[in-house]
Structure formats: C-alpha cells, structure tokens
C-alpha cells in the first residue's frame, strides 16, 4: 500500500469532491472514491475520521450540508455549498493587511490568537499584495491571556446560551456555583470579565474570568435569552468603580514625586496653606477621578507626600498608614519559621 495521505491533503480532497459533486455524495461514495479515506482500516476508523473531518471543516467555516434523498429516509448524502462559505466581496490594500497583522498579534490568549491567525490567513487571500508593516511600526498592543474559560464563554455569548461555573468571590474567598446568561465579554484594567444575568440573584452581575475555577459548561438550549434592551453591559462592570472628580492639596518634599507634580494644576481660589510643621515642602494641587486609585498611588510615596485636603482622602491614607505601621507588631503577623525558611 502507498504511504498514507496526510490529513491536510485528505481534507482538501473532501472539500473539492463535495463542492464539485453534482448533487450529493453518500458516505460509501466518500469512503471508496475520495483520496485519503481508503486508508481507514475499519468501518469504525472511517466513521471517526469522517466525523472529525466534518467538525474540523465546520470550525473553519466550511459547513458540510446533509442532504436527504427523496423517497428513502436513510438515503443520506453530503455536499458543500460554496455560497455558504464564500467571503463577501472584499479587497484589502497592503497597508490594511499590515494593520490586520498587528491586530492578529493583539491577543496573548491562545484561543483568540488561533482564531485571529486563521482569520488573517483567509484575509491574505484577498489582499492586493504582501503586507506593509511600516504603517504600524513599533506599536504593540497586548491583551492578557484569559485562560480556558474564554472559549466556551465566547461561544455561549454568541449562541445566547446560559453557562454554569464555579466562582471564587473576592470578598469572602468562598467558591460557589453560578448560573449566568452571558451578555458580553470585556477587558478592563485588571483583566477579562464576563457580564450577564445571574439567574440565582436575578440581577446583572460581572465576573472576573481569573476567578472562575474549573470548566465553564453550557446549560439548556441556545437562543435561550436576549440581552435586555436599555442595559449597557459595560456600565454594569464600570458602575462598580465610583468615579468622582476632585482636586487634592498635597505637601510634597522638594525634588520628590515628579510624576504627581507633572499632573498638578494651578492653585484654586481660597485654598489651604502649608501647616506649620510642613513649611519646608511644596504645595501642589492634583486632580483625580478615582479616589481608590489615587489613594493607592499616593500612599506609596509614604512621608514624601502628605495629603492636606480633601479630608476623605487624608483619612483613607492615614488609615492605610496605620495598618502598615502595625505590620511588625501584631502577634502572628510575622513568624520565625518563615524567616528561617526564606530569610
């Protein structure tokens, strides 16, 4: 027997045969006439090979249609309809292919990276010539990997199918099973989120993909829900972050905190003066939108930056510093065993 035909060649022969067949081909015809299927050692091996190839082609966007013959219920045949897989008329310039090539590198995630790379190969077929990369020289947008949960969630959002998964709540650390009607996937600071209707809570919720433990499974039928009109999934996620707009008065040590200084605005009317103990410092005014993010930033400067106003910001910083000042005193917070192990 000749050496076996490689899978890519067998798939290509199957596509060409099913595109060119007059009406349809039966499984037996495929097995006996399409090059590559004769290699199957048994009926079972052929069935598995054919089913796998059908799945592979469907994933590539080349659906194999099942055609039932007139009269006989079990007279099933297959064909491929070119109109079902052809790309609408598109022409891409070399510069546009260059941009797409950059877009395909956008995802760190394996699932999306594979999809994007394959899409790019398809689009290269309609390009005017090799891609021009100088247009996007030096730009490297990167989105972090999402992990195994992403693929099933993408499919479920698209198919409008509910999903279930185990989720670790950040507030309590507790792991619970959730049932979600997923509306949209979002990437925001901090990574990947899915937003949808939590069926047990009967309310819109957002979930961080990195806190999903174990597999995501579809439950129930597809087309099981519609994304409610008038709800912006992005707003469900973003509403957790309280945005304010305020100006902080800061007493900064000379030569320090240049990053804060570069964002300083002019001094507002009737603003504070430096208190007696801090007269050797510079008084600057810095606008901020998220108090949480600003506390995180400012507390890192420790004694180099003292908040004078507003009070809420000052109180939060002081509370953080007080917690930190107790790090070396609270019993059980440090233990000699740890020091021995890693010190």
């Amino acid at each position: 027997m000749a050496e076996p035909i490689p899978p890519a060649e067998r798939l290509l022969n199957l596509v060409i045969a099913l595109v060119n067949t007059g009406s349809r081909m039966s499984k037996e015809q495929i097995r006996s006439t399409v090059a590559g299927y004769g290699d199957a050692a048994s009926d079972d091996a052929f069935e598995r090979m054919f089913e796998r190839d059908k799945d592979a082609l469907r994933d590539l966007g080349i659906p194999i249609l099942t055609v039932t013959g007139r009269g006989h219920g079990d007279d099933i045949g297959y064909r491929i309809d070119q109109d079902a897989y052809a790309m609408p008329q598109v022409d891409l310039t070399a510069a546009e292919l260059g941009v797409l090539s950059l877009a395909a590198q956008f995802w760190q995630d394996r699932t999306l990276r594979t999809d994007a790379t394959r899409a790019l190969t398809k689009l290269r077929a309609v390009g005017s010539g090799p891609e021009a990369e100088d247009l996007v020289a030096g730009l490297a947008p990167r989105v972090p990997a999402a992990g195994a949960a992403l693929g099933p969630l993408l499919d479920a959002v698209h198919a409008h199918q509910a999903v279930t998964f185990s989720y670790r709540a950040a507030s309590t650390g507790e792991v619970r099973t959730r049932v979600l009607e997923p509306w949209r996937l979002l990437v925001r600071e901090g990574g990947w989120y899915v937003v949808g209707l939590d069926r047990d809570r009967e309310a819109a919720r957002s979930f961080r993909l990195s806190r999903i433990e174990g597999p995501v499974r579809g439950v129930g039928p597809t087309a099981a829900f519609v994304v409610p009109v008038g709800i912006d999934p992005a707003a469900v996620l973003d509403s957790r972050r309280t945005e304010t707009s305020a100006i902080a008065a800061l007493a900064v040590r000379p030569e320090r905190a240049s990053a804060l200084r570069s964002r300083a605005t002019s001094r507002p009317e009737g603003s504070t003066q430096l208190p007696p103990g801090l007269v050797d410092r510079d008084l600057i005014h810095v606008p901020y939108t998220s108090i949480t993010a600003f506390v995180d930033e400012v507390v890192g400067y420790a004694d180099a930056v003292v908040v004078l106003e507003p009070d809420e910001l000052r109180d939060r910083i002081v509370a953080r510093l007080q917690a930190a000042s107790a790090l070396d005193t609270t019993p059980g917070r440090t233990d000699s065993e740890g020091v021995n192990r890693h010190g």
Partner: peptide
C-alpha cells in the same frame, strides 16, 4: 482550480478576534 477560487468567509470567532482587536487599537492608539 477545480472551482476552488472563492475566498473563505471568516468564522464568528475569527471575526470577533480581529474586529475587537481593531476597535481597541483605534481607541487606544
């Protein structure tokens, strides 16, 4: 060419991957 001249359509996930990347690039770059 045995009639194999039609370019392949993008699958749903393929389209999502590229279009979402392009949109984010437009906003951020």
């Amino acid at each position: 060419s045995r009639g194999m001249t039609r370019p392949l359509r993008l699958g749903t996930r393929e389209a999502i991957a590229l279009v979402a990347a392009l949109r984010a690039m437009r906003e951020s770059l």
